[in-house]
């Protein structure tokens, strides 16, 4: 420290030195990404918009319990289903709502999901969920969660509406590597 202090007092050129730093940056490559035209590539683990698969869901409510802010609302009822000749009671999902406007995208619901592959996940890379009205447009029922009505999918991400994504929670196929 004292060395630098000494040097600064001897050489009054530090202002020019500062100018040279900014001057050099003048010719450097720019960091700007022209967003709507060029989209930054989210990483594979990026916690983006929700994906949900009703057929994988076993209605265990784990995600709703794991959610720190209780934005997953699940309602279900039992139905008699005939499986291999035996009558079984099966939970049927009535309602699976996520209040995305309050979501903090922590991913705990995905971690809590016991199914394999998970029925609720966040790594879909799509982040363009902006809406003009938040109460209606950012409240996702199970139908909207699967159709992604109102979400602009990231290029390359298969939305749940265009067929499920068995075994591939990232939803993408062959994303460009950064």
């Amino acid at each position: 420290m004292s060395f630098w202090g000494f040097l600064a007092s001897v050489l009054p050129l530090e202002l020019a030195q500062g100018l040279s730093v900014t001057g050099r940056f003048f010719f450097k490559r720019k960091a700007t990404i022209q967003y709507p035209e060029v989209k930054p590539v989210p990483k594979d683990r990026f916690r983006g918009m929700f994906g949900f698969s009703e057929e994988r869901c076993i209605v265990c409510h784990s995600c709703a319990k794991a959610c720190p802010i209780d934005i997953i609302h699940i309602a279900d009822h039992f139905e008699e289903v005939e499986v291999e000749g035996k009558k079984r009671k099966k939970k049927v999902l009535d309602r699976y709502d996520i209040d995305v406007k309050r979501c903090m995208f922590c991913g705990l619901c995905e971690e809590a999901c016991p199914t394999e592959p998970v029925a609720i996940w966040l790594t879909t890379k799509s982040y363009e969920t902006a809406a003009y009205e938040r109460n209606e447009r950012l409240y996702f029922t199970k139908e909207r969660l699967q159709s992604w009505d109102g979400v602009r999918a990231y290029p390359g991400v298969v939305t749940p509406a265009e067929g499920q994504m068995p075994g591939d929670p990232t939803g993408g196929s062959g994303e460009p590597e950064r």
Binding site: R45, F105, L108, L122
Partner: peptide
């Protein structure tokens, strides 16, 4: 933040 995003999927609120 890019490194974080790659590790845990979030850039700021890591969890």
């Amino acid at each position: 933040l890019d490194l974080y995003e790659e590790y845990c999927g979030a850039r700021l609120t890591l969890n």
